[in-house]
Nucleic acid binder design. Structure first.
Lengths: 99, 99
DNA sequence: TTCATGCATCAACGACAGTTGATACGGGAG
DNA sequence: CTCCCGTATCAACTGTCGTTGATGCATGAA
């Protein structure tokens, strides 16, 4: 749930899409998105706490990037839900009798 | 985004997991989840507006079920983000030179 | 060291989302 | 028709979340 909550917000959603194109420091996101620095730090912290991104310090810059495992987990959840959903859906077509 | 916003809330998250096991009417969810009827109606409307669930009227009961396409779309988004992310990650391992 | 830059954190505010209880609607049973 | 039950909708309240500007904390340059 935490993962979904992290992504389900406009600013953070856009951050994730940016990071898909490569790691960025806060100042780059600031320029590209036209958002206040305080705002980005706030949302990046949320994403980091949820395990969706990681940060890497290089000099005075902090680079953020996506965590593939987090995206996998979300996909896995949706996959389980969907297969279960299609499971009972086809069994219903057979009149409720499971094959 | 709308889809993720719909799922990214505790009550709705649990509703989705329930519906993965088959369609339910509001009163069934009410019993299983111990939630107020007003509350469930509120969240089911959100899920419906987001296209995550559909409703089917049978007598005086309204049955809700998941919409597979919605789950597919969310999985597709996460898939695109992840492949793009892994793309630049491996190209970085090659010193930035794309093969 | 001193200054400037990049980022994190804080407090105050505003706005929106969820909860609750009451009310209204709608369909079936009698 | 009238009553009952399952749902939807509404209004009021509460709390949580995001925004903003200011401040603090590092790090590198001069």
């Amino acid at each position: 749930l935490r993962r979904f909550q992290a992504v389900a917000e406009d600013t953070r959603f856009r951050i994730v899409r940016r990071l898909a194109g490569g790691e960025r420091c806060v100042c780059e996101l600031q320029d590209e998105m036209g958002a206040a620095q305080s705002r980005l730090s706030f949302h990046l912290k949320k994403l980091k706490d949820a395990g969706v991104v990681t940060d890497r310090r290089d000099g005075r810059w902090v680079y953020y990037s996506l965590v593939p495992e987090a995206l996998d987990e979300m996909r896995a959840f949706l996959g389980e839900v969907k297969t279960a959903e299609e499971g009972w859906r086809v069994s219903r077509r057979n009149g409720g009798a499971c094959c």
